[in-house]
Every structure is written in C-alpha cells, then in structure tokens.
Design a protein around this nucleic acid. Sequence first.
DNA 1: TCTTGTTAGTTACAAAATCAACTATTAATT
DNA 2: AATTAATAGTTGATTTTGTAACTAACAAGA
Lengths: 158, 158
Amino acid sequence: MTEKDDFSLQDFLPFLLNRAAEESSLAFQAHYKNRYGMLRNEWRVLFHLGIFGQMTAKEIGERAKIHKTKISRAVAKLAARRFVSRSRDEKDRRSEHLRLTPAGEAAYRDLRSQAQTYDAQLAQRFTPQEVALLRHMLRQLAGIEAPRSHDAEHRGDG
Amino acid sequence: MTEKDDFSLQDFLPFLLNRAAEESSLAFQAHYKNRYGMLRNEWRVLFHLGIFGQMTAKEIGERAKIHKTKISRAVAKLAARRFVSRSRDEKDRRSEHLRLTPAGEAAYRDLRSQAQTYDAQLAQRFTPQEVALLRHMLRQLAGIEAPRSHDAEHRGDG
DNA sequence: TCTTGTTAGTTACAAAATCAACTATTAATT
DNA sequence: AATTAATAGTTGATTTTGTAACTAACAAGA
C-alpha cells in the first residue's frame, strides 16, 4: 500500500476540515446526545436562543446557515420537550418568536459550560496566538468573516 | 436579536470547524456530484485508490476513518459504474483487493486536478505560513498527527 | 476435529438529511 | 378589491446515514 501518486488527501483542505470537524465534535456530541437525547440541530437552536434570548426560526437559520426544515424539526422537538416556547408575532402572523423555558435555560447553561470546558481543552493543544489565528482562518473559510483583502488594505481605501 | 449571553457560538471550535468544513466542501462537492453523480464517500474511496493503487476496503477505512458500511456501499457503487475492479485475495478469501479501472483512473485524474485547483484557491486567502500552520492544526485536531508537546518547543527560544 | 473467537465485508432496519410541495399569511401590482 | 408574487414555516417522499445483526472465511485452543 505504498503511494503511487503524490497527491495528499490528508492535506486537501475540505477533507482535512471535515475530519477535524468530525473528530472534534465527538466528545461534545456524546454530551448532548446522552444527557438530553438531543440532535446536532437541536443544540444549535438551543444555543442560539440561549445566547440571543429571542429569535424567529428564520433568524436562527440565517445566522447558523441551517436549512429551514431542519430548524422546523429541531424546534418542534425542543418545544415538545418544553425547552422552548413559541409565540406568534402579532404584526406578522406567519412568523413566531422562540425563547427558552426555564428548563431550556437550565439545559443551555449546562451544555454551554460543557462547551466552554471542551473548547478550552481543544485550544490547549496550541498557543493562544495559534488558536486566535485558527479561529480567524476558520471564520474566513466558513464565510462568517469577510476576507481581509490585502490589496484593499494597502490601497488605503478600506 | 441582541446578545444577552456572551458565549460565542461562532468561536466554539466544533461549530466553527463544521461550518468551515461544510462551506469549503460546497464547490468541490458540486463537481463530483454533478459531473459523476458521486457521493462524498465515493470520491474518498476513489481518491484512496488513485493515490495508493491497490487497497482493501479495510485499509481504506482505517486510513480515512470511514466506517466499513460506508466503504462497502461506496465500493459497490463505484464497482457498478466500472470505476473500480475487485479481486479476492487468494491467501485470505475474506478480503478483496480494489483498484481503479481505466475509467476510474480518468475520473480520478479529473477530480484530482479540480481538487488541487480548489485547494490552492482556498489557501490563497492566507499566507503560505498561515496555511501550513492551519493544516498542521487541523491534522492535530483530526487525530492524524500526534500532538507536539509545546512545553518542549516553546520553552527555550521564542 | 470441534468448539470458540476474530475478522472482512454485506445486508436489513431505523434514524436523519434532503428536496419538493404544501398552508397560511403578507406584500405588491393591477 | 382582486390577482399575483413572496415569505415563514410545515409536511411528505426520497435518499443517505447509522447501528446492529448477519455471512463467510480464517485462527487458536481443547
């Protein structure tokens, strides 16, 4: 099983990113799955509501780039478990405002603390500067952060 | 929709890694999907065989950390499309050796070139040093590379 | 040889993701 | 006002994944 071609799959960014994402999600996944029977999209919705207090399904979808059907199903499950409450917007009765119930808040706080611990654990493998750069590059690749355009910056019109 | 909690989901590494992985996979995915009707695990298997020439399903699974059922199905599809050929190992008739057919080789070369172009495009957003560090950290997080003990490396020379 | 255990790979069934079509409501156009 | 288009969210059909059980082949020990 020796290489006959020098292309390195293990250096191909999309592959590498996927592997790193999968691997680094495992431990946290175990937590929300075992402790709360939650799915990936469920904790994501939970976290958004925990962080922002009140949002519509649409706003969550836009911010997390999760498709509306996933949001819909995640919200349905969270609502069934009384982790979120829903209330219609009286100005626009198509959309509804979501927020955490006390039980949802409790679950959020628990998972958030897990997340913080786990994140710190992952970050510990590198220096603070490296981690900062890593997050920056990942935000960049994720399309969360605008590319820092070297050209524009040097032209002085940014 | 203003933050009421200072936890940043967008900095949480598992979330960030997933988003970056998804986003950075889109363009390449479009390629193997549209052009060859392939699935993620199929191009991964194809690439492994393209790079290593001949492997068993087990070897591919170990190297790429893909579960054996995924490999099995990916190989079945690739074999049905005459992209890979299978031959039993006569010493151990449980396992079989997989290799690309000429058609598979052609598909591999096409996709490999796409991958190279695309990877370069992604890398272009950063300096070469940054990209090298990024890959290193991702390999680290993916469990491909052993952690380097920074105590040793960072203690002496800044 | 005859268990017993292990391994390579497949298959079956359940869980989840994807995509399209749908309802209800609001906005825009005539 | 009536018609058409757009939007928020849900539902259903299909595809893909995940998990467990399975078959076939080998291995080791009694």
